[in-house]
Amino acid sequence: MKTMRYISLILIACCASLSFGQTWTWQANEFYKAQNFEQAKNAIDSAIGTSERYDSQTWQLRGLIYRNLDKPNHLFNSEIAIESFVRAKKVDSTNVYTTKINEYIKNTLIKNYYNISVKLLLEEKDFEKSEEYYSIYKKHYLALLDPMYSFKTSDVDYYNTVAVQYITKVDFAEPSKKGALREKAILNCSKVLAIDSLDYKANFNMGIIYYNLGADYIMIADPEITVEELMMNQKRAEDSFLKALPLLNNADRIQPGTMEVYEGLMGCYYGLNNDELYLKYQILVDKHYLPTYLETLKNQPKNIENIKTLIRIYTYTLVNEEEANRLRTVMNELQNE
């Protein structure tokens, strides 16, 4: 009778345990749902030390918990999350969870690698770390989800953005660091062009990078330059403008009639002292912006810079001598005020 009572008690205890799910995995899941990821981690790590490790769901949960952990190291935890999902697949001998686990992996790759890579790039401006995350994202995607997946579109978008970020950094960098940043920007444009030589943004961006480099050789030259250095700088500027031209011409072929390309070509030909082609593009640009300048003249009649621009336009590109002379008179009066 006593023995029967013990057996009954043990059975009740077991049933209670099962019904309340007081396994390590169950506890981990409770912590996970409460978003207490540190406690969840401790519980799930205990679970894999028991027979619960033969349950795919334990590994799935471990993956979900680890992908939410930041300490000690986000990348390290993400790698454990991915390993856990892989393990969950292995344990799932009947493949009941394959689709679900693949979704977990995909979401983890997006959340913990791709999106982090974009944040590092756009918000924290840590370009090298961003590239590290992006490359791990691709490596895992190919290894775990689809070995035939094409990253062409993603790569084009990513490397174009990296190039723009490097160039944006050039504007605020010390002169001694500008060169290295430009090289990185060019490298990223080249990566895009290797994938798709007809990508408008890469052609345009790389063209503008070379144009800006050429202009900088002149614009930020030491005022106390020697005549030899000046000639050397002109040669370097010429080389850069000549590198920019084919890229900007490509951009013009890919997306004809784009004003930003005309402005780039105009700048290059101006720097190369090629008046015929410079004027061709200056006329196109002036035709486009003339209504804006006239609107400014109407609203800000004393804006001398705007008047100067209009005088230039009416004198050299969209010639209107009468209007040019009238504006000269206006400008002289303003300068004498």
């Binding site: 943004k201 002149i218 700048g267």
Partner: peptide, 23 residues
């Protein structure tokens, strides 16, 4: 399974500044 979206890259082109008068 919560669907996690890609954060957009919005890769733009380099801004052309006003043409400097190199000559």
């Amino acid at each position: 399974i919560v669907l996690i979206a890609f954060i957009g890259l919005n890769s733009s082109t380099v801004k052309t500044t006003q043409m400097p008068d190199t000559r």
